Computed example of a mutant assay.
Amino acid sequence: MTDDEIARRVRRSRQWANLLDAAWGIPYTRWRFGLDSLIGILPIAGDLAGAALGLGIVWQARQAAAPRSLQVKLLGNIGLDLVLGAVPIVGDIADVAFRKNQRNAALLEKWAAQRQAATPRRA
């Protein structure tokens, strides 16, 4: 996998995370929310749909040949959000505050940056 392909997948992950977690802002606050928070309002089905949408970032990580340990960490964030989402009201607040997709995109970006820094440059 080339650095350009990995960068493209990381960019897609960031865009997806922004749509799911930070597409809209609440005026006069720093709070942002996205599609994940909106569909998470639906009991059970919304949380399952949010988890399924979050798997898009894990898919990009897998396609970028990210280490299995990173993929497990990404899945752990999704699982934690799914468990928190099972609690009424608390789950809705957790969707806005925890931002699993933003966290996962940041983890993927960090891995890609470390990978690029460790790769020797060709002259």
Rank of each mutant, 00 (worst) to 15 (best):
T2M: 01
L74P: 03
W59S: 07
G25V: 06
K73E: 09
E109L: 00
A17N: 00
D81E: 13
A117I: 03
N104V: 04
L108G: 00
G85T: 09
W31L: 13
G50D: 14
V87H: 07
R8P: 00
A97M: 13
L84H: 08
A49D: 01
L107P: 01
A45W: 15
T29G: 13
A52Q: 04
Q71G: 07
A118Y: 10
R11V: 00
P27K: 05
L80V: 15
A65G: 10
P120S: 12
R122K: 13
A65P: 00
G34Q: 12
R121Q: 15
I57D: 00
P120Y: 10
A97E: 04
R14P: 00
T29E: 08
L80R: 03
I93F: 15
A66I: 06
K110I: 01
D3Y: 07
V83W: 15
A97W: 09
W24E: 09
I89R: 03
D3Q: 15
Q15W: 13
W59L: 04
I41C: 09
R30N: 13
R12N: 11
R9F: 13
V87D: 06
A52L: 11
R99Y: 08
A113N: 03
L74K: 02
G56F: 05
G85N: 06
G46F: 13
D81V: 09
R122N: 14
G54T: 05
L74W: 04
A97D: 02
D95C: 09
L48F: 14
N77E: 07
A66Y: 14
A112G: 06
Q102S: 11
A66K: 01
Q63T: 10
K100Q: 12
R9D: 07
D21M: 03
L38S: 01
D3V: 11
L82R: 10
A61R: 02
E5D: 13
L80F: 15
A61K: 02
V10H: 02
N77T: 05
F98S: 02
L70C: 08
D95M: 09
A94R: 03
L107C: 03
R121A: 14
L107F: 10
D95E: 11
L70S: 07
I26P: 11
L107Q: 11
G54N: 04
D81Y: 14
R68A: 10
N18S: 10
A7Q: 07
A45C: 06
A117S: 11
Q102D: 11
G56N: 15
Q114F: 07
A106Y: 07
A22H: 10
P120C: 10
R14W: 14
L19R: 05
A7E: 09
V90W: 15
D47G: 14
L108D: 00
R14N: 05
